[in-house]
Amino acid sequence: MSDVRFTKDHEWVRIEGDTATVGISEYAQEQLGDVVFVELPTVGADVEAGGDAAVVESVKAASEVYAPIGGTIVEVNEDLEATPGLVNESAEDAGWFWRMEISDADELEELMTTADYKAFLEGLD
């Protein structure tokens, strides 16, 4: 079973060995409404934890997607270019944004577990 962590900005990151897959949470897609466009990072780009990496847009809003941890982008989800609605249909699976090589696994310790995140969301309402 892979390990999933969350940020306070509602990104998720799933760890599989040295690589991590990143997307936005189910809660985030609900808040955004219909996603109409996703601007993905460039493969090969280095990102820092907390740095801008992608943009997700609905009709009335545009949100930055921050890198939960630092590393190098190795793959982006090109399906989102033609079908941005995947983010709504499957935010935490098929609607992933990018995969990255992890530069510092210690940064994962700063993030929330699934249970922590659930509690965090309850605190928001």
Binding site: F37, E57, S58, V59, K60, A61, A62
Partner: peptide, 12 residues
Amino acid sequence: LSTREQHIRREK
């Protein structure tokens, strides 16, 4: 494509 514009994107 209004998310390009100032009333949504403000400084971006």
